[in-house]
Design a binder for these strands. Structure first.
Lengths: 331, 331
DNA sequence: ACATCGAAAGACAACGTTGTCTTGGAGTAG
DNA sequence: CTACTCCAAGACAACGTTGTCTTTCGATGT
């Protein structure tokens, strides 16, 4: 009833324990007939090696598993990252442990520790905590950051060109004649939110329009946009610096019936953006490329690459679809 | 340089190996001062127990890890399932290994075996293969199916009420006067596609309209819809029995400029369906509930519940938004 | 003061596997 | 025919931990 061991296999095959080990590990120094008998015994007993025991003896201490910590696996951006990482891992026969952080600093630390304790060969983290210095203890477990840069700890990092992308979005609005351009952003403590705000400022110089920070999620963004557009001197264009904020703003403009008057460029593409009316102009990130680059970097480190921390920057793409090309109209 | 062991901790704390083991495992029979010394040593050496070795000796052979095999973690339905499962797992301190199957039968088998080999405590599978009988060997590793029922093997299964949901959608169209209602479905071998088709037939009795099977993905659906709507005797309403098919059909109707003429009900909700024009009426599934129920069932089994296989059915919800309420118009 | 008991702490074996060393027997050269 | 080489296959220890058994020592009861 208990799980069969190599010894059981050896007994039924009539060979020594070690011979079974050799066959299971594909060592070539086994006579074909013995190997066949062993394989038959393995099959008949449904033997599967005990990884714990195996791990303990092996030199190469690899679990062929990596850990991935993302913001929320059910959000399209994280999900695309996840998928790209999975694909790279699959091609190397590596499995993936995933968890969502939900902007919870403590969860980041706890899960990073827990994954490492499971001896994942490496970790990919979209950092949420304000400080990653807890990772300095993680000798022997390479870490790569995605989407956001770390602080208090250096490692390979793969990010979008947030500043440049945001600046490009805002310049696009300026090119269509807009001067009062509002900024709507997520929690300021999120590094990418800060970067995108900097891009916005850069593009506008002194002429920055109304600025709304710390909008987290669709509902908050919708509410804030409604208030913003109702007050005097409302902007003629919006730059929404995150996915859900963009959608919230779209809802608000709809409710006000001003979706064809107020121009809008969002940071980060989202499904069906092209089917809305007007279709939403966005600065698209490329989560698949980002995820792939992060996985590649991690595997390089796992394979022993030992250079200084790298920052890999993945360019964004402005996709004009209509909402960003609306001309100014009198309010 | 090598990873510290309990022995190293014991030496620096000046106690025996076994005492360290007791402290690490929280056994109460250790004098407070010794325990404190041990904890200090653990801290200073950054000792982490070797799970492999631990697993080997323990009776309770639990890795506190489950495996989850989904269609594609980057598709919103799978991602929502994943997230719900993760949440249940988190509340039990269990980690999650995830992988995407992409309708690849072999991958399902290989990954199920690989996950089991990693001694996951249980498995949640959205089956893609035509036959799950390979699971009969999986004694000791409970399995729960989500989204689709298995064949050739019985286990707890959590599915939407596909037949009833589809029938309801079609009756809704009938109630708005439609008689020529087309069915657009995914690969017929997918059990849910079959179920939804049966619901469609059930609602229409003899009067079934044009039927298009084996549309996989947005592009195929769009192309098929274009062709369908251009031919003589085109339907006045569409029932699209899957997410991406719905979106493909929406695109096609747009391109034809007939999105306000042809009624549409889709199976499975999708983000922004309410923001399209017209907003898309759907039969919503509840992936969060499904995932949660599946995780609950799995953990019950892991905890030793040993009843006959259960089928848990999660009701769908018809959400009228506009596209399904369009009246008939002359073509 | 001595026997008895109990609790804490240590000694030791065992888990299932792999690394290394040893054995044995066939093959080859002189 | 002997001596040597080579290679497959087995014996055995070791990995880091926990279960069980034993020892130690102080407390308790008479």
């Amino acid at each position: 009833m208990a799980r069969p061991t190599m010894n059981d296999v050896a007994r039924t095959a009539g060979v020594s324990l070690k011979t079974v080990s050799r066959v299971v590990n594909g060592e070539p120094t086994v006579a074909p007939d013995l190997a066949a008998r062993v394989r038959a015994a393995v099959e008949s007993l449904d033997y599967r090696p005990h990884l714990g025991a195996s791990m303990m003896r092996r030199q190469d201490r690899r679990t062929r598993t990596i850990g991935v910590l993302l913001e929320d696996v059910s959000n399209p951006f994280s999900a695309a990252l996840h998928r790209a990482i999975e694909d790279q891992a699959r091609s190397r026969g590596v499995h993936v442990l995933v968890a969502s952080l939900d902007e919870d600093e403590r969860r980041e630390r706890d899960l990073a520790r827990a994954f490492r304790q499971r001896q994942t060969d490496g970790l990919i983290v979209a950092p949420t905590a304000s400080d990653q210095s807890y990772l300095t203890r993680f000798t022997g477990t390479p870490v790569v950051f995605v989407d956001r840069g770390p602080s208090g700890f250096q490692a390979d990092t793969v990010v979008s060109t947030n500043v440049a992308g945001a600046a490009g979005a805002v310049r696009h609005l300026v090119a269509h004649g807009h001067r009062r351009i509002a900024f709507l952003g997520d929690y300021q403590r999120i590094p990418t939110a800060g970067d995108r705000f900097r891009g916005y400022l850069q593009a506008l110089g002194g002429r920055a329009g109304p600025v709304l920070h710390d909008l987290h999620g669709e509902v908050a963004a919708e509410r804030a946009t409604l208030a913003l557009m109702r007050r005097a001197g409302a902007p003629t264009a919006l730059f929404t610096s995150q996915n859900l904020i963009t959608i919230g703003a779209v809802r608000a403009l709809r409710r006000l019936g001003r979706h064809h008057q107020v121009a809008l460029v969002g940071f980060d593409d989202f499904p069906l953006a092209d089917l809305l009316d007007p279709a939403v102009t966005v600065v698209a990130q490329h989560p698949a490329r980002i995820g792939r680059a992060a996985a590649d970097a991690l595997f390089e480190r796992i394979d022993g690459h030992d250079g200084p921390p790298r920052e890999i920057r993945v360019a964004t793409t402005l996709i004009p679809r209509g909402s960003g090309e609306l001309p100014i109209r009198g309010s």
